[in-house]
Nucleic acid binder design. Sequence first.
DNA 1: CTGATGACCAAAAGCGTCTTTTGGTCATTA
DNA 2: TAATGACCAAAAGACGCTTTTGGTCATCAG
Lengths: 199, 199
Amino acid sequence: MNNATQPKSTRDAILDASDKLLAKYGYKKMSIQDLADEVGIGKGSIYLHFSSKEEIALSQIDRIIDRLKTRLITITGRSGSSAQRIAEMLVLRVIFRCESVHHYSQGINDLLSQLRPKLLERRKKYFEEEAVILAGVIAQGQRDSEFGPGDPLALARVLVTATNALLPYSLSAFELGDLKAVQAEVRAVADLLIRGLRN
Amino acid sequence: MNNATQPKSTRDAILDASDKLLAKYGYKKMSIQDLADEVGIGKGSIYLHFSSKEEIALSQIDRIIDRLKTRLITITGRSGSSAQRIAEMLVLRVIFRCESVHHYSQGINDLLSQLRPKLLERRKKYFEEEAVILAGVIAQGQRDSEFGPGDPLALARVLVTATNALLPYSLSAFELGDLKAVQAEVRAVADLLIRGLRN
DNA sequence: CTGATGACCAAAAGCGTCTTTTGGTCATTA
DNA sequence: TAATGACCAAAAGACGCTTTTGGTCATCAG
């Protein structure tokens, strides 16, 4: 119990520190010593939780997505029309990310440009995971005759691709513009897509 | 006649040279002297056609989009269903760009990262221009009762946003993957969007 | 007279060498 | 046994000098 609680808490503290320092210094200037100081541990102790500096930064982004997925899954379990849930989920995938990285001055691609290949790989994985969650709701909508026929996962992937341009990867959250406007934009895209699902 | 032919041809020659040298050296290492040598003119003559090195690179991207728009407008003038034309246009906006920059080793954002603010601004302008062309076809589809009601331009903007993630800005054409696969992906997005327009 | 040119120049970028910092490791200590 | 910070090779930064570059314009040729 104590072992299970303690390492997880230090791990999260390190990720919290990385969140703060990535925003403040960017990836390059964020040092392991800075992280250790921020957490209040020795520098070598960082390596009890993460294998490298790279892994810390990538894990911080992973964590954002994990939290997003938890939220998405909450929506899937709710009552209400599948269409409404899909719309909410599409909006959430964009807005949640924007809110999670709004304190970073660059898009994630630029922030972690030194880790580009690994970042792109994880990104692909995230998108696929999100699509799987969306597919569950699409399938349910089909069973309820709310949506027309088609492979739920393939359709879910279309939904993900269609909203990807609004994610804060290439453009920073700042460059993407006012969050309300972004939300309205996702909403418009989602509405048209859902109308397509209904056919 | 001769005056009208000559300056335009040198301007294009400069842009051709910039296309080649951007691919070979990237923006930073491409020099004005290199460009002049490639065209076979004096270095100062470059400034008879372009105000700066920046303007040359941005004009080369402008030129790609101008060519794309010409192609888009050709499709609007064709006979056939509006749905088919919209689908073709959405595919074209992605594939044409990919083909135009496939010899660049980076996405356009990274290639011209030193010109980011201006590039983003022009990008916005391109998207709006493309949306206006698409809106014409949507409006016609509505008049033909092929599509349901709604503001054609707002719907067109949704179509543009929904396909933007597949453009070679953030990811290079190489990173976007096999062109056939990209085309299939745009097509899938387009199909669902058009089903939405039909409602 | 007009337009093309390349010499010129200040600023930017590159280079080489030395110095400092850093990510990762591990011997030491509590 | 787990946390720590000294250590080290490599990377990055700093500095001063050299070279290159974007833009300008005096000059020249047609």
